[in-house]
Simulated scan of single mutants.
Amino acid sequence: MNNIRNTETGEFGLSVGDMRSWFAQEGRVAMIADEFEGVLEHFESYSATVQPEHDATTHKAVQIAPKKVGGVLTQKWQIVALNGDELAQIDAQRVADEKAAADAARITITKRQALLALFDLRGIKDSDIDAQIDQVPDETQRYRARVDWQGAASIESDSPTVQMLAASLDLSASNLQALFDYAKTL
């Protein structure tokens, strides 16, 4: 049970082990029963409550001093806005989670598998892909797409070049998924 508060330091959520450590630091020896009832001088037990609902992306619940409710010392909370560091940490975690999800969803196949799948399932040949790349209006994008496609030993399902080619070849997301799934079997 972690419903003990040090009245001297204001620290919440202490366990019986925490109390023993405090007494050891004070140079005292204390035998404390596991069913602590808040009778020691610097500690008090309190009734735990559920944190109030809040938007965890912008706020947090912080324990404040417990209050007596109906004669029982009861845990209390205050909702406070996250600071800049906390917001940055949440944003960094979101970005990491999105990257992990994208990495997990990515399918990588060999160029040989890609070409065979395109031909087997859609009748699309390497020359058809070259023709689509030739139609890219921006010279820089066209060159980068050509180098990316022609120079690739492997093809990733989420690469910008694959996404551009899928759109120009009228391949839906489900068509592209089916192509990659089939290519993995080759």
Rank of each mutant, 00 (worst) to 15 (best):
121 L>K: 09
99 K>T: 12
100 A>C: 03
75 Q>C: 07
137 P>M: 04
161 T>W: 01
1 M>F: 13
18 D>Y: 01
141 Q>S: 10
80 V>I: 15
80 V>C: 05
72 V>M: 10
13 G>L: 08
96 A>D: 09
32 I>T: 07
95 V>F: 06
77 W>T: 05
31 M>I: 14
54 H>C: 12
128 D>P: 05
98 E>D: 14
55 D>L: 11
112 R>F: 15
147 V>K: 14
112 R>M: 04
34 D>T: 11
78 Q>M: 09
118 L>W: 03
170 D>L: 04
117 A>D: 01
20 R>E: 13
135 Q>F: 01
101 A>C: 02
130 D>H: 14
31 M>N: 15
176 L>I: 02
178 A>P: 00
107 I>P: 00
133 I>L: 03
184 K>F: 02
91 D>T: 10
54 H>S: 06
144 R>C: 03
167 A>I: 02
16 V>P: 01
34 D>M: 12
186 L>Y: 14
44 E>L: 12
54 H>R: 15
25 Q>I: 00
49 T>R: 11
117 A>M: 06
37 E>S: 13
46 Y>W: 07
163 Q>C: 05
115 L>E: 04
108 T>K: 06
132 Q>T: 11
138 D>L: 11
130 D>N: 12
147 V>L: 13
160 P>F: 09
45 S>W: 06
142 R>N: 12
47 S>N: 10
167 A>N: 06
123 G>M: 06
5 R>P: 00
11 E>D: 08
86 E>F: 07
146 R>S: 11
93 Q>K: 15
101 A>F: 03
34 D>I: 06
46 Y>F: 15
115 L>C: 04
68 K>W: 09
39 V>H: 14
176 L>M: 14
41 E>I: 07
21 S>G: 08
94 R>E: 08
26 E>C: 07
51 Q>W: 04
10 G>L: 12
39 V>Q: 15
88 A>E: 12
18 D>M: 01
169 L>V: 00
173 A>C: 01
154 S>N: 10
71 G>D: 09
6 N>Q: 04
43 F>P: 00
19 M>Q: 06
137 P>D: 13
33 A>K: 15
182 Y>A: 02
48 A>Q: 14
13 G>F: 08
156 E>K: 11
154 S>Y: 08
88 A>G: 03
12 F>C: 06
103 D>W: 02
10 G>C: 10
130 D>Q: 12
9 T>A: 06
64 I>Y: 08
70 G>D: 13
76 K>E: 14
2 N>T: 08
89 Q>S: 10
54 H>Q: 07
175 N>H: 13
185 T>F: 02
146 R>T: 09
64 I>Q: 11
115 L>I: 08
37 E>P: 01
117 A>C: 04
185 T>R: 14
161 T>S: 08
56 A>K: 11
11 E>A: 14
69 V>Y: 06
180 F>W: 02
186 L>W: 09
86 E>L: 05
100 A>L: 13
73 L>C: 05
153 A>I: 07
7 T>Q: 06
138 D>P: 02
186 L>M: 07
45 S>V: 15
71 G>S: 04
4 I>T: 04
76 K>N: 11
9 T>F: 10
171 L>T: 01
179 L>Y: 00
80 V>M: 08
25 Q>L: 10
7 T>G: 14
71 G>R: 04
65 A>H: 12
112 R>P: 00
7 T>D: 03
88 A>C: 05
13 G>S: 13
105 A>Y: 03
152 A>P: 02
20 R>W: 03
5 R>E: 05
32 I>V: 15
